[in-house]
């Protein structure tokens, strides 16, 4: 049987389908149209919201496949891999894309070995090669210094993860038709040698990777107490707080806030770098942001190379002035 069809691996939390799934539908629809084939959204979980599943059809899927069981409520790599393998063997998709999230970046490499498939991490561009129909996967490497285009000529399925926030979520088009096939996951697929015994949510309001706006601090804030300088700005932009490695190594911010090669990769709509010099390692973690604003007293700082708008000057004067101005603008 030939491999055909494009799949996206949706994500759910507490039974609600997450935004990354809709971003993947944007990518998947484009690929499926070019390939003249169907788009399937696969979601694993427990008791998934029926309206949310219909929402996947509305947003471009031709078919939704679920595997559901209490054991699948939270991501665990072994049962998720076993369920995906059964679906892959049954339906033989040609392309599978997932989010480059903590889930996608764990599930996909574990699964690709079992499926004997090629996998490309963290793609920013996906396309179809017209002559061969192969998936062309473009991704940054070497800290974002180069882009590489990769394909998987002989192995199927072709698998890729794409960065969250690197595309807009697909909009619903009410009235679209599609098939929703909900299955209870067979018991024999649900064994796991890893157990999730607890979960502790991040104390800060939103996670860095999911934020639309990120305000980051670097060595330029001079000391840890000075994080308060950016707080009003972050508040008026409804932003998550990020930090350069320098700021984290000095103990001014905790590691989960670190943006860059040894921290998190973010692609928000707006990234505001405050007193961040812009080492290659930092740029690698944020240069795919849609708009980048930099405030730094060094006109030669590397961060200006990737910025759309830069202010050269004293951040301790400028940042409060911006926050004040935004507050006034919001009141108007």
């Amino acid at each position: 049987m030939e491999h055909r069809g494009v799949w996206i691996v949706g994500e759910q939390s507490e039974g609600r389908v997450q935004r990354i799934s809709h971003e993947l539908l944007t990518r998947g629809r484009e690929l499926a149209d070019k390939r003249e084939t169907d788009l399937t959204a696969v979601v694993l979980g427990n008791d998934i919201d029926a309206d949310d599943l219909q929402g996947l059809i509305d947003r471009g899927a031709d078919r939704v496949l679920t595997m559901e069981a209490p054991e699948l409520e939270h991501f665990l790599v072994e049962p998720y891999t076993a369920c995906m393998m059964q679906l892959i063997e049954r339906h033989r998709p040609e392309i599978i894309i997932a989010g480059a999230t903590s889930t996608g970046r764990t599930l996909m490499p574990y699964l690709a070995i079992r499926a004997d498939a090629g996998l490309t991490a963290d793609c920013t561009v996906l396309d179809i090669e017209p002559e061969t129909g192969n998936l062309l996967q473009t991704r940054p490497a070497i800290g974002g210094n180069i882009l590489a285009t990769i394909k998987t000529p002989e192995y199927r399925p072709q698998m890729a993860t794409v960065r969250p926030r690197s595309t807009r979520p697909a909009e619903p088009q009410p009235g679209r038709g599609g098939e929703i096939d909900r299955q209870t996951a067979p018991k024999e697929l649900l064994g796991s040698r890893v157990r999730r015994v607890d979960f502790v949510p991040d104390e800060s309001e939103h996670g860095l990777a999911e934020a639309d706006v990120v305000v980051s601090v670097g060595r330029g804030i001079k000391k840890g107490e000075n994080v308060t300088v950016v707080e009003p700005l972050a508040e008026s932009l409804d932003a998550a707080l990020g930090a350069s490695r320098d700021a984290v190594d000095r103990g001014w911010m905790s590691y989960p806030h670190q943006v860059g090669l040894s921290g998190q990769t973010v692609s928000p709509k707006l990234y505001v770098a405050v007193g961040v010099s812009g080492s290659i390692q930092h740029l690698a973690g944020m240069q795919t942001a849609e708009t980048i604003v930099a405030i730094n007293n060094d006109p030669e700082a590397q961060i200006f190379r990737v910025a759309d708008f830069g202010i050269v000057g004293d951040l301790f004067e400028i940042v409060p002035a911006i926050a004040e101005k935004l507050r006034e603008a919001a009141e108007d």
Binding site: I146, A148, I150, K151, E154, A307, G310, I311, V312, I318
Partner: peptide, 24 residues
């Protein structure tokens, strides 16, 4: 033995034009 092949490697296009203002 590798399923994937690198087709090409290229430098990212610098598409950003930084509008830089000085406020010293």
């Amino acid at each position: 033995g590798s399923p994937t092949r690198v087709v090409k490697i290229f430098r990212p296009q610098v598409t950003r034009q930084c509008r830089k203002v000085t406020a010293v």
